[in-house]
Amino acid sequence: MSCIKLPMVEEGEACFAASNTNLVVHGNKTWIISGGKKSRVFYSADKGENWSVTETPILQGDAPTGMFSVDFYDDNIGFAVGGDYSNSSGNKGNKILTEDGGKSWKVMADGTAFGYASCVQFVPKSDGDGLVTVGPSGVWYSYDRGATWKKIHDEKSFHTIRFINDKSAIAAGQNSIVRLDFK
């Protein structure tokens, strides 16, 4: 077994893994997100042989801030969530979108919808438009690639969610596992 050493990891930069979604692999392509004092995207197009690093506009600068989860619908469309774990209601700078494979990111729905989120997943067969997040603000859904959000469940204990098909997902957290069915 060999260990990957990411390039240019800085003091106070970390990879949060509570939802098991700080790493995405599509074929030969790999994205790893960081948080803390720096919150960046590490990208490899060749299974980790070479890496590039991209700065992001997500909230960062302190230990409990940054990206906590990322998902890619395809090789271009990706979405990351996070925020400030110690201020779970803060909803500024906590949702970012890329449409160029992670080369550039833009803040979405700034100052609206949920605060800190621990996991984001694309809805299968949604053309990259459907997203679901979980965290202490509840379960939220977007049909327009993160521009607007609607709360669909009040449960605040979920840390992770995974789709099992294009209509159902399993959400889990402290002392709970539920199946969510989407229409």
Score class of each variant (00 low, 15 high):
S2V: 15
C3D: 15
P7S: 02
M8K: 14
V9K: 12
E10F: 08
G12Y: 01
E13T: 05
A14N: 11
C15D: 08
C15T: 13
F16Q: 10
A18Y: 10
T21N: 14
N22K: 05
V25E: 04
H26D: 02
G27K: 02
K29P: 00
K29F: 05
G35L: 03
G35A: 04
G36T: 13
G36Q: 02
K38D: 10
S39D: 07
S39H: 10
R40A: 13
V41R: 01
F42I: 08
K47E: 12
S52L: 08
S52C: 01
V53I: 09
T56I: 09
T56M: 01
L59K: 06
A63S: 14
P64E: 06
T65N: 13
G66T: 00
M67S: 13
S69D: 02
S69G: 05
S69K: 04
V70E: 10
Y73N: 00
Y73E: 04
Y73W: 01
D75R: 15
N76T: 04
G78N: 08
G78W: 04
A80E: 01
A80H: 11
V81N: 04
G82D: 10
G83S: 07
G83E: 11
D84H: 06
S86Q: 10
S86V: 05
S86R: 11
S88V: 15
S88D: 13
N91R: 12
N91M: 02
G93H: 10
N94E: 07
K95S: 09
T98D: 03
T98V: 07
T98Y: 08
E99K: 15
G101S: 07
G102I: 07
S104Y: 03
W105P: 03
M108N: 04
D110R: 04
G111W: 02
T112Y: 10
A113S: 15
G115K: 12
V120N: 07
V120K: 03
Q121G: 12
Q121P: 06
Q121L: 12
S126M: 08
D129W: 01
L131M: 12
V132T: 02
T133H: 12
G135F: 02
S137A: 02
V139T: 14
V139W: 08
W140V: 08
W140D: 13
D144I: 07
A147Q: 13
W149C: 05
K151A: 03
I152W: 00
H153A: 13
H153Q: 10
D154R: 09
E155G: 01
K156N: 13
K156V: 13
T160K: 06
T160W: 10
R162V: 14
F163T: 07
I164G: 02
I164Y: 00
D166E: 13
K167A: 02
K167D: 04
S168M: 15
A169D: 11
A169I: 08
G173T: 02
N175P: 01
N175C: 09
I177Y: 03
R179C: 13
R179G: 05
L180F: 06
L180T: 05
F182N: 08
